[in-house]
Amino acid sequence: MAGDGLTVPELDQEKYDADENVKIICLGDSAVGKSKLMERFLMDGFRPQQLSTFALTLYKYTTTVDGKTILVDFWDTAGQERFQSMHASYYHKAHACIMVFDVQRKITYKNLNTWYQELREYRPEIPCIVVANKIDADLKVTQKNFNFAKKLNLPFYFVSAADGTNVVKLFTDAIKLAVSYKQDSQDFMDQVMQELENFELDKKVEEEEEDDLSDKEEYDTHVAKPHIP
């Protein structure tokens, strides 16, 4: 049934329980620069896996943390509201979150509230980094005080995907946080969340009946090769 199509990104999510795998999600409004940041960090040595119907791009990345090899999956999501129903799968088993806003657009900063609230519904504990992107557009913003992160006691980075400022630092720190979170937690929430998510998704399917067919097609094509080597 249609529900299958919508759960695609949950595909293979069991692997995130394995020690050496971490999942990091990148969230924020449309056009804040999430994809540009990913691309800047990974340059072009990596071919992403695109799940366009689900507004999701997966990037695989291998690195070492404290001498251990770590396989990182970055989930680059889309901000568009019509993909709201996918959010549960984005959050599922994530070990860290990078939450981006655009220093040129107040609305994207204001919307952090909503993103953060939603994140905490699904993942109350995971590390979350707040990111002010596009500082190249107006360097003065870096001398201003942004209270959102401070209020919540979250790490805060000024970055630019265009000129590269602090991009590598952001991602390497996010990986470290994800790895140490994983070591410290047993993720017992996941089982419960799984139930809730399936419930949520089923409900949403009904409202999206018309997209149903194309979703399914997309699903079938991609399911065969979950990861491009």
Partner: peptide, 8 residues
């Protein structure tokens, strides 16, 4: 700059 691009 105030437009909500999430809705487009």
């Amino acid at each position: 700059p105030d437009e909500n691009l999430n809705k487009l």
